[in-house]
């Protein structure tokens, strides 16, 4: 350990060549992290450029806050620890606002909301299932909704469901379908590849992100109702450090403005084809 620190003293010399971060109190410059692998929320173009709803929204929000924005990519499974380590100031990566996450970080927003849904292989038994309800509100589970969950649990017995690691969908599986085998992936795209390959029987994700994969893969289809709230949280927000309450206020104001002037609805139409804004 001592040796590491000593070695890092050398690193410190290197780091002089590295920019000292902007003054944190003014927020004239804000670093925003996204995943770049969760279309249509955020993705990486073949040119290497980050694109997507959240990338455009981040630029709009920064314009409204008169801040200079730097948008960078960060793998999902380290996105919260790296925020806490100060590698950036804001997370905009399709991250739902949940009680667990609120224990370690804070959120501005929500700026959008999308239900969670399953995808599976066309023609499979799962794809043939029919449900009485189109949506299930997990905050207040009524008897009819419980029946749907029970039916799903039965249908998925002995099957494997893929989710992205440390997501609300992983929590959903652990809490509501604990007896179903779950496999966690670094990105939802990887789960998608394994679903096509037949290593998975189903995949659970944010509906729009799952649909984006289903659209590109002929062999896949969505199935089951849309799930919202409860373990799935209260919409997608911008994650930030708990101590940065001034930044939270600024971001909330900018999000409210973007909601009011139709910016979010417009970007949403452009990337999702429908309105995901929170009214």
């Amino acid at each position: 350990m001592k040796k590491t620190v000593a070695a890092l003293a050398f690193g410190a010399i290197l780091a002089i060549a590295v920019s000292p971060a902007a003054a944190q109190d003014k927020w004239s410059k804000i670093r925003i992290a996204t995943e770049g692998a969760y279309a249509p929320w955020n993705a990486t173009a073949p040119s290497g450029e980050l694109i997507g709803f959240e990338v455009d929204l981040a630029r709009e929000l920064c314009r409204k806050m008169n801040a200079e924005c730097q948008i960078l990519a960060q793998d999902w499974d380290g996105i919260i620890p790296a925020l806490q380590q100060g590698k950036y100031d804001v997370i905009m990566a399709g991250m739902s606002i949940t009680d667990e996450r609120k224990q370690v970080i804070d959120f501005a927003g929500p700026y959008g909301s999308e239900p969670t849904a399953f995808a599976t292989i066309k023609g499979s038994a799962l794809a043939g299932m029919t449900f009485d309800l189109k949506g299930v509100d997990l905050a207040t589970v009524e008897p009819q909704e419980q029946q749907i969950l029970d039916a799903l649990a039965k249908a998925l017995e002995g099957k494997t469901v893929g989710v992205q690691t440390s997501t609300i969908q992983a929590n959903f599986m652990e809490r509501l379908l604990p007896q179903v085998r779950m496999r966690t992936y670094g990105t939802l795209d990887e789960a998608g590849i394994d679903l096509v390959n037949g290593r998975l029987d189903a995949m659970l994700g944010d509906r729009s992100a799952a649909q984006e994969i289903v659209k590109k893969e002929e062999s896949l289809t969505m199935f089951g109702p849309n799930f919202v709230r409860g373990v799935l949280g209260e919409g997608v927000g911008a994650g930030l450090r708990q101590r940065d309450q001034d930044l939270k206020a600024k971001l909330n104001a900018a999000i409210a403005e973007a909601n009011g002037d139709g910016t979010i609805a417009r970007l949403s139409e452009q990337w999702f084809g429908y309105d995901i804004s929170v009214k």
Partner: peptide
């Protein structure tokens, strides 16, 4: 651990996802 196996490193990554204690 990069192909979903939960050996020591895979479990460590999962624990970090839950506790954020890198």
């Amino acid at each position: 651990s990069t192909i979903t196996l939960l050996e020591i490193t895979g479990l460590a990554r999962r624990l970090i996802a839950q506790t954020y204690a890198v």
